[in-house]
Design a binder for these strands. Structure first.
Lengths: 308, 308
DNA sequence: AGATCCATGAAGCGATGCTACAAGAAGACT
DNA sequence: AGTCTTCTTGTAGCATCGCTTCATGGATCT
């Protein structure tokens, strides 16, 4: 007669991921188990919650309603745990952090190290994630904190039930082979050279195109690299110029010349996102880690100077 | 790592009933099971939730916090069920109604019969309850609707998370042995006769005393009856007069004379109480029953005329 | 048409939660 | 004081539940 909250969790995950197999993967069980739980839940609810659509399933109206309630219930449970942890006032438990590669290495790792040093009972787990996937994992509780980037001309919309915690501004840098000599950051001087940029559809590529067009030319992109380390290696080999955010400039090859991008300054903003706790405290462990993350010094963002 | 909602239910029940044994009875399990669940919950929570105090247990601060969250979570689950039922728009399931005896017989039973006749899938269960106990059962979900009474000079406080649904006003009647002749409802004429009243501490007794004192005398109470049927039998035997609410006047013995109590009119108000659904619908089944209950005709409240 | 992916069902096994019973602690009664 | 009662907690055993594995049935893509 009563709805089982554990099954509601399963339904919520299915609604989030859009399928039984995906939900099963997120829950670390087999699709069969998910299917059985949903079947039982439908019996408890007294009506069909999802129907087959092609190869997969879609939620019925009742399924959507119930999934929405499930979200609220799961939030209330998490709030209870947070309230309890806040009452104990001790920072422990696990904090799962998802971040894109350059932030993970330059920002999250040091912050995690500081937090772990300060709170011995803390367990921080860093996962490299894709932007889109990370939001699902944040909603489902697989992740507690995600670190996102936002290029200044591409604002990132954020749902109202998520909290935004600014971390840093990360200015773009112009990098060229040392053989080319210094350009003093003038983008316009590089209208006729070969370029290295990120893959189609990435915000980094859009940012590069945006900056070049502002400077009055269309870059001649010859090479594509998603990993900034590869970008640096390509530049080091003299294959072209590139625009790279400062955070990615760690362990720079010796053949790469770096200079800050002169006016107009192009930069990306880096921020953390957590599930919003409408009322009531967040888990102290999460707050402790966020404190370390947002306390990042400006110097951490300019490793260029240290390397040059 | 996660708090189990089923265990939170157990904790909530313990907080409500004030003990493990009482909670176990309400949950229809053995105290041992409750104790084990609480132990497991304490391990999940990471701190003690209750401590022994004398023969029983009391909640620790953490226990109170968690029980409070549990209440919210349970409410959210119930809201989910209500939302689902409202979506199905069909009136079915079980409605458990608690009422004091006279209302149960005169009001609840006919309303339940009408509701059952109109909605074949409905399952209504009427339970005779004590006022105090019924509120706990309402909170814990053992009952969905309780019917309470309120004498006009003794207002009944109601928590903010409960909804009040007025049903009827039930005026008091003056009943005397037929041999005494008609008194035309003047209470002052009966200052020197023997009286029959309810037991110490009952609101009915307070109401009788209040009415007599307003009329300027202290009644000479010789007999005590809680059940109004017994009161009527005692009056029928010529042992005294009594003040009885109209609803109790069913199947009146032939030797009993009934007349409405003249000014000042003393009456009790009868109302139903349900758990408040802050936002979102109530279960259609409960609404359907409430509709029948509040649609009670005035004629139902004056069976006197039909019997006289 | 074959191949692939996804959801669902049946059988079996391990874990979980219950009952029954016993023991210990703290009032209440005589 | 001593005994009784009441309440909670612990242990052993058993039923139920939920998972995995394996197999089946649709639906889409090539």
């Amino acid at each position: 007669m009563d709805l089982d909250v554990r099954r509601l969790r399963v339904l919520y995950e299915v609604a989030l991921r859009g399928g039984i197999t995906a939900a099963a993967a997120a829950l670390h069980v087999t699709p069969s188990a998910v299917s059985q739980q949903l079947g039982q839940l439908a019996r408890e609810a007294g009506c069909e919650l999802l129907e087959r659509s092609g190869r997969g399933v879609v939620l019925t109206p009742a399924g959507h309603v119930l999934a929405d309630h499930a979200k609220r219930i799961i939030g209330a449970v998490e709030q209870a745990q947070a309230g309890l942890a806040a009452l104990r006032r001790d920072v422990n438990g696990t904090v799962r952090v998802g971040a894109f590669p350059s932030a993970a290495g330059a920002l999250v790792a040091p912050a995690a190290a500081r937090a772990l040093a300060r709170y011995p009972d803390l367990d921080i787990r860093v996962v490299e994630v894709e932007d889109q996937q990370s939001r699902l994992d944040l909603y489902s509780g697989t992740l507690d904190v995600i670190v996102l980037q936002e290029y200044d001309h591409v604002p990132t919309p954020l749902a109202s039930d998520l909290d935004r915690h600014p971390i840093a501004r990360d200015p773009m840098h112009l990098i060229t082979p040392v053989g080319w000599g210094s350009r003093s950051g003038r983008l316009g001087d590089l209208r006729d050279v070969r370029w290295i940029a990120s893959a189609e559809g990435t915000p980094c590529l859009r940012s590069t195109l945006h900056a070049c067009r502002l400077a009055g030319f269309e870059p001649d992109i010859r090479h594509r690299a998603i990993d900034f380390a590869l970008t640096l290696d390509l530049v080091d080999a003299g294959l072209g110029a590139a625009l790279v955010p400062g955070l990615a400039l760690r362990n720079v090859p010796s053949g790469v010349h770096i200079e800050p991008l002169a006016d107009p300054v192009t930069e990306r903003r880096i921020f953390a996102v957590t599930r919003s706790r409408g009322t009531g405290p967040r888990r102290p462990a999460i707050d402790a880690f966020l404190a370390e993350l947002t306390a990042t010094q400006r110097s951490d963002l300019e490793p260029v100077a240290a390397i040059r």
